[in-house]
Simulated scan of single mutants.
Amino acid sequence: MPAEPARHILFLNWRDTANPEGGGSEVYTERIAAELVAGGHRVTLLCAAHGGAPAEQTLVTGVRVLRRGGRHTVYLRAALAYLAGGVRLGPLAAGARGRPDVIVDVCNGVPFLSPIYARCPTVVVVHHVHREQWPVVLGGWRGRLGWWLESRLAPRVYRRCRYVTVSASTRDELATLGVPGSRVTIIHNGLAGAGAGHLARAAHPCLVVLGRLVPHKRVEYALHALAALAAELPGLRLVVAGRGWWEPRLREHAERLGVADRTDFAGHVSERGKHELLAAGWVALVPSLKEGWGLTIVEAGAHGTPAIAFRAAGGVCDAVRDGRTGLLAEDLDDFVAKTRWLLTDDLTRARMGEAARAYAAGFTWAAAGRQLAALVAEVLGAGSPIRPPQRLP
């Protein structure tokens, strides 16, 4: 991490990794926040309260977590906490009840709109544009309102802010909302913990899906692939790891397709368990409607497991090097066909797996932390400008 003045950096994110509905955005936020702490900065994460999680907590990484409000009220509570000077870092921190030097405003569709009330610079993080997801997640007038907030109001409120995104695909989508590429820095997801010990590949054909169980992740497509290939691959199984309110519907769908006995719903898995599943799988399926990057793709690649995703899903086009580290499908039929190809062609699967392993090795959280620290320094006028983002090779 560069030698820069210690700053108080406030992250605003709707959830944290302990939240049952947390996902890749929360991993990204907390991993980079931890790198900033390691570099000497003070970091606070304000997110929604949930379950029995404490209202205030300091993680082992040194990141201070404040949980305020709920799923819909966290945005207002963040503004009130800032205006009240309530973003504190502990009793011994100098200026502990003072306001942050910079806000990192993570916009997961609904924006925090921090420039309206904050008296410090804001850096906006957008993992992906939710255009296709609003009708699926909410629909009706609520979906239209969400899309207006994201596509009309947010670009205006953040018009003087620097943006961070995780892929060239999302950078290009932001341009369609009026955010010029000159204000967007690409900071990729990192990778950690994948190489701890030898993890065995399953002896039988195995498909793996990892993520939140919600409609727009389209786990149904993986179930369809399983059903379509079951007759020709009698030992084929699908492992679905993750939790979410859509799980009962997925179980019902597996029953209707006649593949319930071939589908393992693993629920929430530990970090070690996640890597064991990704290493055991022959192919990782990422049927999501939209992803900013697709962290699971690179995590699977670190174990030599190629992935299949949809070309129209945004950032997966950067996480998957199509034809080299995995495959991108055009539609459901193509998704099934490409799943069949990788499961039955051992040489191609092994070649893509090794390429995926090499590709994944280039992504680290330390590098991501250094990039964000440099951007913070630039925004605060304490460092030299960083180079504009480049497309992946």
Rank of each mutant, 00 (worst) to 15 (best):
residue 1 M to K: 14
residue 10 L to Y: 04
residue 17 T to C: 11
residue 18 A to F: 11
residue 19 N to K: 06
residue 20 P to C: 10
residue 21 E to Q: 15
residue 21 E to L: 12
residue 23 G to P: 03
residue 24 G to W: 02
residue 26 E to K: 01
residue 36 L to R: 02
residue 37 V to F: 03
residue 39 G to P: 00
residue 39 G to Q: 04
residue 41 H to S: 11
residue 42 R to K: 12
residue 45 L to D: 03
residue 46 L to D: 05
residue 49 A to G: 12
residue 50 H to Q: 06
residue 55 A to W: 05
residue 56 E to G: 05
residue 62 G to W: 02
residue 63 V to H: 11
residue 65 V to F: 07
residue 66 L to D: 06
residue 67 R to E: 12
residue 67 R to S: 11
residue 74 V to E: 10
residue 75 Y to L: 11
residue 75 Y to I: 09
residue 76 L to D: 15
residue 78 A to L: 08
residue 85 G to R: 12
residue 85 G to V: 13
residue 90 G to I: 11
residue 90 G to S: 13
residue 94 A to R: 15
residue 98 G to H: 13
residue 102 V to P: 02
residue 108 N to F: 03
residue 109 G to N: 08
residue 112 F to R: 01
residue 115 P to H: 03
residue 115 P to A: 07
residue 117 Y to Q: 06
residue 118 A to F: 07
residue 120 C to N: 02
residue 121 P to K: 01
residue 128 H to Y: 08
residue 128 H to F: 11
residue 132 E to F: 01
residue 133 Q to L: 15
residue 138 L to H: 12
residue 138 L to C: 09
residue 148 W to I: 09
residue 149 L to D: 00
residue 153 L to Q: 07
residue 154 A to K: 02
residue 154 A to P: 01
residue 156 R to E: 12
residue 163 Y to V: 01
residue 165 T to G: 03
residue 169 S to E: 05
residue 171 R to N: 03
residue 173 E to I: 00
residue 174 L to C: 01
residue 177 L to R: 02
residue 180 P to L: 05
residue 181 G to L: 01
residue 182 S to K: 08
residue 184 V to M: 00
residue 190 G to I: 06
residue 198 H to C: 08
residue 205 P to Y: 05
residue 206 C to F: 03
residue 206 C to K: 13
residue 208 V to F: 00
residue 210 L to V: 06
residue 212 R to A: 05
residue 215 P to C: 00
residue 223 L to Y: 00
residue 225 A to H: 00
residue 225 A to G: 07
residue 231 A to F: 02
residue 232 E to F: 03
residue 233 L to S: 01
residue 235 G to S: 11
residue 242 G to N: 04
residue 249 R to Q: 14
residue 257 L to D: 07
residue 257 L to K: 07
residue 264 D to F: 10
residue 265 F to N: 01
residue 266 A to R: 08
residue 268 H to F: 14
residue 271 E to G: 15
residue 276 E to Q: 15
residue 278 L to Q: 07
residue 285 L to P: 02
residue 295 L to V: 09
residue 296 T to K: 06
residue 296 T to D: 08
residue 297 I to N: 08
residue 300 A to M: 08
residue 302 A to T: 07
residue 306 P to C: 08
residue 307 A to R: 06
residue 309 A to V: 02
residue 310 F to S: 08
residue 312 A to S: 13
residue 314 G to C: 05
residue 315 G to M: 08
residue 317 C to K: 13
residue 320 V to T: 09
residue 321 R to H: 15
residue 322 D to N: 14
residue 326 G to V: 12
residue 333 D to L: 07
residue 337 A to E: 14
residue 339 T to L: 04
residue 344 T to Q: 15
residue 345 D to H: 15
residue 349 R to I: 10
residue 355 A to R: 12
residue 367 A to Y: 13
residue 374 A to N: 09
residue 375 L to W: 11
residue 380 L to D: 06
residue 383 G to L: 07
residue 386 I to Q: 15
residue 386 I to M: 15
residue 389 P to D: 15
